[in-house]
Design a protein around this nucleic acid. Sequence first.
DNA 1: GTGAAAGCGCTAACAC
DNA 2: GTGTTAGCGCTTTCAC
Lengths: 350, 350
Amino acid sequence: MKDSKKRKSGVTSIKDIASEAGVAISTVSNVINETRFVADSTKEKVLDAIEKLNYRPNIIARGLRIKSTRAIGVILPDISSSFFSQVIYGIEEIARQRDYTMILGCTNFDYREEVKIANKLIDSFIDGLIFFSGFDNYEFIKKIYDRNIPIVVIDKALGDSEIPTVVIDNTAAVENCVDYLCSYNHKKICYVTFTGDNQTTVRQRYEGYLSGLKKNGIDFDPDLVLMSEEMRLNETASSYRIVKEFLKKGKLPTAFLTVADVFAYGVLRALFEEGFKVPEDISVMGFDNILFSQFTRPLLTTLKQQKRVMGNIAMNLLVDIIEGREVEDKTIIVPTSIVERESVSFARKK
Amino acid sequence: MKDSKKRKSGVTSIKDIASEAGVAISTVSNVINETRFVADSTKEKVLDAIEKLNYRPNIIARGLRIKSTRAIGVILPDISSSFFSQVIYGIEEIARQRDYTMILGCTNFDYREEVKIANKLIDSFIDGLIFFSGFDNYEFIKKIYDRNIPIVVIDKALGDSEIPTVVIDNTAAVENCVDYLCSYNHKKICYVTFTGDNQTTVRQRYEGYLSGLKKNGIDFDPDLVLMSEEMRLNETASSYRIVKEFLKKGKLPTAFLTVADVFAYGVLRALFEEGFKVPEDISVMGFDNILFSQFTRPLLTTLKQQKRVMGNIAMNLLVDIIEGREVEDKTIIVPTSIVERESVSFARKK
DNA sequence: GTGAAAGCGCTAACAC
DNA sequence: GTGTTAGCGCTTTCAC
């Protein structure tokens, strides 16, 4: 292991460059940041020294002074979800474009982790935060907001017009799904969802289911709601298991509407194993339109969320806030649409 | 917006606590870090002040002194991939356990991004790095390693026994797959892969295909290799398109072996649309065993990588290195196995 | 048991 | 056009 002559902290600092180049430390800083004019000859000496000593400025030390690191944090419950990762992709695009670094903090749907990670990021080096929360934690978010930390909340209506938010209209979206199904004559629509005690988004979707039924003159049947917390962790596997059991009870719906595509996959599998043909016997409709829904058998009809666009918007909003630009609209509602593929058709006659 | 009396940098610092509690800065530091004994009465005053001013120590400033932030960086090509996200999960488990924060940097398979993000993390606040590379960039990794930055490389054999690495034996694994297929009498095995010009892992798997054929006395037929760079970005969609075209040419294999499960999904779909039954007419075998392979039709027979375990091992290794523990084995090979499901059966008679 | 002060690597105001 | 120096928020010697 070869050691340099000087080894204060193991890493070359601006000071080393200054002495190597025989100039003042501020001069080095100035050539690095192009923050004031430096004579070409001096500049060259500095650049040479940097090259020679393989120097890289310490962003953190800079951040300590400058109070900005051009890094933003994204808190989310679960990276393995295709929905999240698509949104992330949208965030990243803008990060790159506007020269920020994106830091991901993943909470695995654990509320304490959420608080812990958010705090850790805030305490450290982050200029702002994008918050996908798994929970109803308005208080916590509000507290961050009140500390004047730039934040935008995504995929979760907060009911606070002050806090910047990017969402879809969940209730209307599910209502549209119900309308769509009804236009194919479905009257027995089984709704598959996780429990929403703790999650606005899930609750709003459920309301959409309810109001959709009402609007279409269908009586609500509690037996046709498959709601379980278990589905949170093992999404597809649980919906598969639950639907399979449900089918054995013999009370058949004409269609399944699921709160997410991943559940629809489980439904599809259960239906197949129990000998039902989709959509001839029973229709299935998803929600999200994640990538894989283009490869199921049959191809999945679903509600499309513009995930990448949501990420773009959220990140642009956040950076605007960080950089002090005027933000007119703080709550942004991204439109959704239905993608018609193969898994929904007319309800079988009784 | 309510302002505090003092608003130097907008955030309360250790100094504020010291003056609020009427003690020295160092005392505050000492109670926070429990780094030397402080009288109970003093301690209480400090704690009260912290509570009252809602103070949180600035990890970065600490890091600047201490040269450690207990954060590690993970560089990876693509978060949306199920394979990566499972490994990440394994990394995270250990991070939590050993009290580190995991920072994710995503490169979208862009080499310059890879360099840029890695450097940015290193220059900043990271204690170590886990590197999933999309590329053959031994030089770059070596340079990081030589800078004495704790690093472990995952999913990529480097051929340098010095640099800590967690991998599977790709060649042997694919060879096993070929053996397995041969045990079902397959002699025309079509191999679906992206190009490996730039990626050791992909190349090694291809070698496994070749050596597997040889070992089983099968002549190599170049027409049976579907190799394309296009599949990198649109994995499933591309494999679907390519296989569909291939099938129309009429030269039929008895089995498809794909370099990743995501490709197998495309193959499955193409086969279905072209009227082939799997596995009766043609068998399909994947590689990775990602979650979704339990829900395809038919269920996918595939080679299982222990993704979470790989993450666990890599992170433990990294933390051991960071904390200066002695590491005996620097190259760790994680075993693989074949998961038999429904998509492979005996080759049809010619 | 506690305080004063130096210093981590950097920027920016102020000098000249 | 360049140098000196204070200070960002923190830890850690060294005093007392």
